[in-house]
């Protein structure tokens, strides 16, 4: 029976000791960010940008996101718990715009400004959206691809998904640019690997098998791009131009080794930074533009170590 008492004690002790330091910091401005993910390197880079801004402006920032980008309900629970803390402003990257609207409305009623980041929320509640212009970024990928393959040939796309805003924008940004500007390039296949490296590998292998003589492939996010690289390695394919998206160790290595021609990088650090900055402005009642473009770059082996690029790449 002593055990039981001890156990209850331990449970209580964990609760209190883990949380005790938090109770002291009540006065400073509090801006929680609810993201689409947490343990992915991309989201960790967003978090580091948010932390930078927090240090610079002297505000308290927390960062949370569900384990997987499918867990729409878990993200809503996170938002609910966060609103209970009466934050001064909230950063929110919606997994599903519609599902979050009742809670966002509640935030608006409580006078808590909401800043959308990464992908927009289909609602007029957010005061602004800090995001990459994905359509323009994917169009740049199409331009680079065309340049490498000499303006003609067959190419394919491995996209991360067909439902999220980023998935749709990057796919269409690439496809539309190809259709408009490069009549001699044919996009033979667009397939989806859910951003999962292994699934994307299988998808890319299937495309390679089905299309001998393929000139290039575009992967719309980190997992998709790495999937293509894996497929090329496993099938020992040569002469394939790969354009990737985002960064991460595996992708930057592939670029350094020459397996991948180059990649588009968003500025995840900038997304986190701009979100906190905008949230603070909104809290102070300052006017904000409807969209804050956080920028994107094309990088390859030649400029990967330049300060401007290195600062936005993550491992």
């Amino acid at each position: 029976m002593l055990t039981r008492r001890t156990l209850l004690g331990v449970i209580g002790a964990i609760t209190l000791s883990v949380t005790a330091p938090v109770a002291m910091a009540q006065e400073e401005i509090y801006i929680p960010l609810i993201s689409k993910g947490f343990q992915h390197q991309f989201w960790q880079a967003v978090k580091s940008g948010a932390d930078q801004a927090a240090a610079e402006f002297g505000v308290r920032v927390t960062f949370e996101g569900p384990d997987s980008e499918t867990m729409v309900d878990r993200q809503i629970d996170m938002l609910a718990a966060t609103l209970a803390n009466k934050p001064d402003a909230v950063g929110f990257a919606a997994l599903d715009s519609q599902a979050a609207i009742p809670l966002l409305r509640k935030a608006a009623e409580a006078g808590i400004p909401v800043v959308a980041f990464d992908s927009g929320v289909e609602s007029d509640i957010p005061v602004t959206t800090a995001t990459t212009d994905n359509v323009a970024a994917a169009a740049l990928a199409a331009d680079k691809m065309a340049e490498f393959i000499g303006g003609k040939g067959k190419v394919a796309v491995v996209a991360h998904d067909q439902t999220s805003r980023t998935g749709i924008d990057r796919r269409d940004g690439f496809l539309n640019r190809m259709a408009e500007a490069y009549p001699d390039i044919e996009v033979v296949s667009v397939q989806y690997g859910q951003g999962d490296q292994l699934q994307s590998t299988e998808v890319a292998k299937a495309i390679l098998t089905a299309n001998p003589g393929l000139a290039g492939m575009f992967g719309t996010n980190e997992g998709s791009a790495i999937g293509i690289v894996n497929a090329v390695r496993e099938m020992s394919a040569t002469d394939l131009v790969i354009i990737g998206y985002d960064s991460g160790k595996a992708q930057t290595n592939a670029i350094r080794e020459g397996v991948m021609a180059g990649a588009i990088t968003q500025n995840p650090v900038g997304i986190g930074y701009e979100t906190v900055k905008a949230a603070l402005s909104a809290y102070r009642g300052e006017a904000l533009p409807e969209v804050i473009d956080t920028g994107f770059y094309y990088y390859d082996a030649s400029n990967i170590d330049e300060a401007k690029i290195a600062a936005v790449l993550y491992d």
Partner: peptide, 14 residues
């Protein structure tokens, strides 16, 4: 537990 740790802003890893 999940909600409480969140309200107390415990880092998500923990």
């Amino acid at each position: 537990l999940t909600n409480g740790l969140r309200v107390l802003s415990v880092a998500q890893e923990w």
